[in-house]
Amino acid sequence: MEPNLSVDFFGKIAASPLVLASGVMGISYSGMLKVVENGCGIITTKSYTVQRRKGHEGPVVAEFNGGFINSMGLSNPGIYEGMKEIADCKKRCDAPIIISLFGVTAAEFTELVRAVDSSIIDAIELNLSCPNVADEYGIPIAASTEKVFEIVSAVKSITKLPVIAKLSPNTYNVPEIALSAEKAGADALTLINTLGPGMIIDINAQKPVILNKFGGISGAAIKPLAVKLIYEISKLVKIPIIGTGGVLTGEDAVEFLLAGAAYVGVGTAVYYNGIDVFAKINAFFSSYLRQNNLASVRDIKPI
């Protein structure tokens, strides 16, 4: 029998537990469709703000042995343009869509949530953590249990959609933040956003390669941190976790499920292993399930 990769996502069926991470390919409707065609089960859009943002001047991406850094600067056309793009995607495919929202205050988040058309969106992800804009707004909100509680509660009180809190790894108290989000009513967590930010200097130019100097670290380098936080936090909370951070291969994805993730986010791997990385990971899921005589990905139980 063909192993079953499909999973439930808040009452909808997703063809695979793989989730496109926010900020990768999620700008145009055709980019989102392309990812679904390549085997991704659930889409997360680029993080939207109320006003459109141009983002930073390049170079905005760079690489080092073992990882990747980016400083896109949250470029996005604004939530209203974004909703049109999502509608165009939804018309053409039935994969669940998570809309990612970026704000700094509870008021900003609730304004964004009011602009969300809940008839075409399957869940809301609150980006509580982007390190690239921490400088502009002071301490990242992701480090404050009170702020996270306040924002999640405010959002929960005005929407019926499932609310996912996406947390930053850049604070010592991620487990407490996770508990605080759960207490405020979050329906799921995404762990983790990019690490850092970090810095790479070009030795020929003797300048930082990222024009904005610093960039969030993603890719292989952050994987052990993601695994540890998923493992630790999945034992503390009852809500499901979208485990994200450094998943490049099928082996990595299985490792995340074993750590306690219910879904597996994939971002930077699109660069390392191509747009068909989702299909490659799905193929590995199938062979892993067959090898272990399991019928469904849901039979891969957390250790």
């Binding site: 390919m25 700008i27 145009s28 980019g31 392309k34 470029s75 699109v270 660069y271 747009i275």
Partner: peptide, 22 residues
């Protein structure tokens, strides 16, 4: 084009999702 390496999704052509940089 922002990234030039197929990750940001900025350069896709609708409706096929062709990334012009790749």
């Amino acid at each position: 084009m922002k990234c030039g390496i197929g990750i940001c999704g900025q350069c896709t052509l609708d409706p096929a999702g062709i990334r012009l940089c790749i």
